[in-house]
Design a protein around this nucleic acid. Sequence first.
RNA 1: GGCGGGGUAGCCAAGUGGUAAGGCCGGGCUCUGCAAAAGCCCCAUGCGACGGUUCGAUUCCGUCCCCCGCCUCCA
Length: 470
Amino acid sequence: MASVHILNTLSRSLEEITPQEREGKTLSLYTCGPTVYAYAHIGNFRAYVFEDLLQRHLQERGFLVRRVMNLTDVDDKTIRGAHAAGIALADYTKPFKEAFFEDFRTLRLQEAEAYPCATAPDQIARMIAMIGTLLEKGHAYQVEDGSVYFRIASFPNYGRLAHVDLENQRPGQRVASDEYDKEAVADFALWKSWVAEDGSVGWESPWGKGRPGWHIECSAMATGLLGETIDIHCGGVDNIFPHHEAEIAQCECAGGKPFVRYWMHCAHLMVEGSKMAKSSGNFFTLRDLLEKGWTGREVRYALISVHYRGALNFTFDGLAAARTALGRLDAWRERLIETAGLENTAESTDPSTEGFFAALDDDLNISSALGVLFETLRESNRRMDQTGEGALTPSQARGLLNWLARVDGVLALEPDAVAIIPSEVEELVAARAAARNAKEWQKSDEIRDQITGLGWTVKDTKEGQKIIKA
RNA sequence: GGCGGGGUAGCCAAGUGGUAAGGCCGGGCUCUGCAAAAGCCCCAUGCGACGGUUCGAUUCCGUCCCCCGCCUCCA
């Protein structure tokens, strides 16, 4: 039985992932989702692609993964955006939510079990209940304007995840005007009382009209849907402090149980040496890249092919490399299909191919896994070049295809569905075949130009003409 | 200042106390009417710098240099 090991941010050591129940197979996975005030950029999606790889590999290893991803649809930025647009908050966030799910599918991310929204009435109710509990237990306090803050001094473990000592922290640049009467600078808002800029945004609570703080949103949604102790919690490294630290404080103070067993964080996507961020303006959305002619799976490959804990420099050279590598994989796949023919029985693959999954067991070592994939590709191509002794047999090809199906289950990089070839193009291809048989090369080339003019590319292979969308 | 991640061929990148995976680019060849595609082969005496330990270090230890991130609502 294979065991999956990951680097736990909390312990900073490699740990084997095990279910909470002795004989169980289920793992709960909570992943911080987007704030829907704009289109998510591909830096955001790097985290989601990493989480998708994690989920798929855990499934390959026999676990049942219950994944929840939240959508933050109320915060300063969404309120500001709605206000600027002069529309209701829900109307402002709706198109960004829809776009997010569209991008999600384009990148072949597996569906989560639930996507709770912070503004859902049941979630708001849960947040209010949690805040009430924290107040009762003395972990929170209300200030003059009605806002409620978490009392960090009441939770000695605060800072354990990030390994920070609050005494050594430099004060941040921002000092919000509504936080002047906090007990301690580091105390964070659980409930923000309504102010004029909030417009129509606000919910009634025991502390008056207001809205939840960002941290309590995640705490409430995570424990509400997955239970008081979650197995794996992921996010970007920038969320370790203070967001995840705050989540721990809230959940463990309110519930009294350990909040998360394994914390995993992925490094940033970089652009020319700096972190890709909306605030820096150096970002690309998936839409930007699709418009430039890149496909979802090419972007997925580029994002998935670097280990999640290393910074990934985003470049168009990198995308081009992804495209070429995928083309090789596609050609190999087709060759295997041809070699396998109608053969049903599969010969087991070389044991070394299991190295692909073993590499992922080791904290998702994707580079090593891809190394196995491409070595397998070359070795079997070599054998398909041969005839007679040593040549790849149909049943061996079938075995490799079966293995490849498992690899696809984890990487999800199989080719897009073949585009439907218009009858007009089909006719030209047939005419060209006839011209080629008659060795009328000039006519053949003319027809090829016509096909190209219609937006298709024709290639002459040993098996005849192949047509792909240009 | 505190904490964390990193410096491996033109680019991306894995890895190991015993002599450097893999991908892209580039070069060669094969296939081929041409073109394109594809396949195979080649491509780091070298792993930020300098010391030390060792039979042997890119890998361990020490010192130093450089890059990036977080430090209160950024994945």
